[in-house]
Design a protein around this nucleic acid. Structure first.
Lengths: 276, 276
DNA sequence: CGGATCGTTGATCCTGCTCAAAGCCAGTGG
DNA sequence: CCACTGGCTTTGAGCAGGATCAACGATCCG
């Protein structure tokens, strides 16, 4: 069994095992379930060519999606533009995130994805994903989990936008990114790479750049965080968490219920019917 | 082939075929893909006992989810409470909606679901869903699609909360519900059942009850809508759409790309590998 | 009839927006 | 090495969309 780095607590060791492939993804999944060595290598071999995008470049435009992307390096956003130029950033994509696990069913994307920094993605053929899904229940479960997490993140954003004040929102987002980056081993000490302008932060949180600036300033003066030059330093995690009212349980970095694990394992060897 | 009511345009005929089971679900799916008669009956037989909930009752509390629910009747909300009592409504559930297609993977729910009106749901065993998924690729595709749609709705809500003004948000939500109800045949003429208080509307849109009231008043005076007594009457769809800046394409009531359809159909008869 | 819940309206306040100008780089070109 | 530029941050002054609070009507229901 490959268990990877299964803790939620700080941990900065690098991922074991070979190439540059899906290490972040595998590591992220390891927070949730343990895949067998076989499964891990099956996952690894599901790779297409690596594609590279420059800062600001669109990874997926509005049109019909063809492939699934796995982020392997960089920082990207999903976003939507309104006709009058208003922009809303929907999510941030970090290494290990799946771009569009099943959008191939759709006629068109309802939003775009752009790289904020030089970004690498592995493009996987839809067909490879689908056949893997039908062959490896445990991998399927892991991918489902990733989708669930993604959805939970969206819901949490809704809560933030609907019911939290500016300061809370900002603190919340910073907490969330901390946990997510943590889960793929991208946290060094108390800080992480955050290649965002204040305007982009605002576009994610429904705020204007100047106001974001003021709030950041306030948090800096209070020595809670220091956000500058593409890097966020968290000076006081406790305070930040508290300001945010953050509770990370929605990220579900926690193994699934025991029976479910068993159930998926039992499907591994054929007969899906005879589950305990 | 069962094609059901596959149009997006107004249509009020009732769903053909037997019992009270998953008719709304099947009808909704029919907007997107056509299932065979076999598949439809397979779907129909995946039913557990029907459970009933009264107005205001919780359907799913915070705890560990065990089953998948399919809404067959009524109107419900997913919501989250913050510690200080603030509430955010995340989504509205209408007949044909799946409650929690794969949350069984999680240790705990991060939000709750409550009935706004007397509501019926069919509780399906997780295991039945999972085995159906592995046996019927086309059904799987349909369920995936439903999940995608759900996610798109969440994203669109984020856009609304982040970047739209109060009036736009309200109009937007009303448009969305119109389309969704339309897709399951719950629109009569220009109006639909909307058993919401203004406070609940506010909780969904990040607004206070009084302000919701003012905006509704304004829209009523302008003869765009009339919202009263658990029913919304749309007086001027064009104006409403325009006020909202609504574009329904994110709901993806549109068949999937041809090759994908073929691909899933090809998997129907065994060998997942030999796709065109 | 009394009580609850919900809708309506007004007065007032404040969070966060707008607009504008000035500083601060990092990169570029001379 | 300097000047210039363009993006980003910082700060200020003023404004407004929507919040708050409070009171009063409806309506429903036992």
């Amino acid at each position: 069994m490959y268990t990877g780095a299964a803790s939620c607590a700080p941990c900065t060791s690098s991922v074991p095992g070979g190439g540059e492939g899906h290490d972040h993804l595998i590591r992220k999944i390891a927070n949730f379930s343990s895949l067998s060595v076989q499964e891990v290598s099956r996952l690894r071999e599901v790779g297409g060519k690596t594609e590279t995008f420059g800062r600001g470049e669109d990874i997926v435009k509005g049109e019909r999606p063809r492939k699934v992307f796995v982020m392997t390096e960089g920082f990207a956003i999903r976003y939507r533009l309104l006709e009058d130029g208003r922009r809303q950033i929907l999510t941030f994509l970090i290494p290990g995130d799946l771009c569009d696990l099943h959008v191939f069913l759709l006629q068109s994307m309802d939003h775009s994805i752009a790289a904020l920094t030089p970004t690498k993605v592995v493009a996987v053929e839809t067909r490879d994903i689908v056949s893997m899904v039908f062959q490896h229940p445990r991998i399927t479960a892991a991918l489902w989990w990733a989708m669930l997490q993604e959805e939970a993140i969206l819901r949490e954003r809704i809560v933030a936008l609907g019911r939290r004040a500016a300061e809370e929102r900002i603190a919340y987002l910073l907490c969330e990114l901390f946990w997510r980056l943590e889960a793929v081993g991208e946290i060094k000490g108390g800080s992480y790479v955050l290649p965002l302008t204040q305007e982009q932060l605002g576009d994610a949180l429904g705020l204007t750049p100047s106001y974001v600036n003021r709030v950041l300033g306030k948090l800096r003066v209070q020595d809670v965080i220091d956000f500058g030059k593409d890097r966020l330093e968290i000076r006081d995690v406790k305070r930040l968490t508290q300001v945010a009212g953050f509770d990370g349980s929605y990220l579900h970095f926690t193994p699934p219920p025991e029976e479910m694990r068993r159930y998926f394992e039992s499907m591994e060897e054929g007969a899906p019917e005879d589950a305990a």
